[in-house]
Design a protein around this nucleic acid. Structure first.
Lengths: 211, 211
DNA sequence: TGTGAAAAGCTAACGGTTAGCGTTATGGTT
DNA sequence: AACCATAACGCTAACCGTTAGCTTTTCACA
């Protein structure tokens, strides 16, 4: 898995990065909707089909790190410190995410997103995919079925922190406020493991299903 | 507002209904993705531009009652019985919604939705719009700013019931399970009004902002 | 060096959506 | 009763994201 990449894959990765960088520049300069796929391909000096073999959609060009974001979220749960509860691990994770949002580059990026309906929608469906991934890890950690209502309800609630933090004047406070609302009494039905002694379930989680 | 419509508007409404009915039939018969806009327009005997002057997108043809659904949701809060709390009113509302889902026509409709990625995505962004509307009513009812974190968190949690109920083997139980998790202790921060004596705030709500 | 496979390319199209512009019907006003 | 502003509808032609089909280049490995 973590072998040296080889010339071929290095070139592929380079092409991919080059396309994404070119697109990002153009988006930031002229706005997402004002830049066409054919233009991007021309500017990056690749064929349109090549572009689409690297990215599933135009929006994915802007949200290149979307998958990484999901992986980090899953990691926050599976790789949390022993004796740390899942809610606590998630709170910590989202505090870090929110700090990242404050970076100047991130601020500019999210302004770009806000200016384009297409990107806004893409972002919100992204949170939803994360929701599914989070549900799967938590269910696995607790030994529950993936379809568990409480797991899904919990994941859904937690992922709501993304839009909330983004639109709040004080994102860090919003994160804390949301997680403070998760009281030990909140999850009442047969899943005290949510808050109780952490990491009791030994089931390993084999990564999210990338599309 | 509720005057007699006049010939012009009656014709317009008739055209709209005719287009929607034609489209629905074709979708149910051949599937959403297998029917093209140009076909629908031809079958309804209107121009494509006319079709798009009535509906903002192809998906909106299938989800024609989306706006009504949102209105009913808002109504469930503003028009609830005196002394009924907001969570209780919403529980009642969603129990009714879930019952509606069990109607044979509804079952067929939702199968259609499940079979098309485009419609699935449209549905989930629809819940999100409802989320904004619900946040606005609740904030208005409680005299809070629309951007209140707790209001948004609460609305977000509640709207999660839609996908949850749809994918649950026992939707009614899922609804109850979700609302049972909303304990009086859940909303702790300065908003005990969520569960407390209902309808104390007299602010009228002037309907959702239709696009 | 040869070979199979992955990566990249080209052309052409498909399907949703919109712009531009013209025509007709309707409702309200003088 | 004549009139005008405007809403509703229509036609044509395109734009834009995306994909299929097929050829060419590049690399890994024998």
């Amino acid at each position: 898995m973590t072998e040296e990449p080889g010339r071929r894959e290095r070139k592929k990765a380079a092409t991919r990065r080059h396309i994404a960088d070119t697109a990002r520049e153009m988006f930031l300069e002229r706005g997402f909707d004002a830049v066409g796929i054919r233009e991007i391909a021309a500017a990056a000096d690749v064929a349109v089909t090549t572009l689409f073999s690297h990215f599933p959609s135009k929006e994915a060009l802007a949200f290149d790190e979307g998958q990484k974001r999901e992986d980090r979220l899953v990691q926050a749960v599976t790789g949390r410190a022993p004796e740390q509860s899942i809610p606590d691990a998630l709170r910590e994770h989202f505090r870090a995410v929110v700090e990242d949002f404050a970076r100047p580059a991130a601020v500019i990026f999210w302004r770009l997103v806000d200016d384009s309906p297409a990107l806004r929608e893409y972002a919100s469906t992204m949170w939803q995919r994360h929701e599914d991934a989070l549900t799967a890890v938590i269910a696995a950690e607790l030994g529950l079925p993936k379809s568990s209502t409480t797991c899904r309800a919990f994941s859904h609630y937690v992922l709501g922190v993304y839009p909330l933090a983004r639109e709040s004047p004080d994102p860090m406070a919003a994160v804390d406020e949301m997680f403070d609302l998760i009281t030990p009494g909140w999850i009442e039905i047969d899943v005290s493991g949510f808050h109780g002694a952490a990491r009791s379930a030994p089931q390993p989680y084999h990564g999210a299903e990338s599309s």
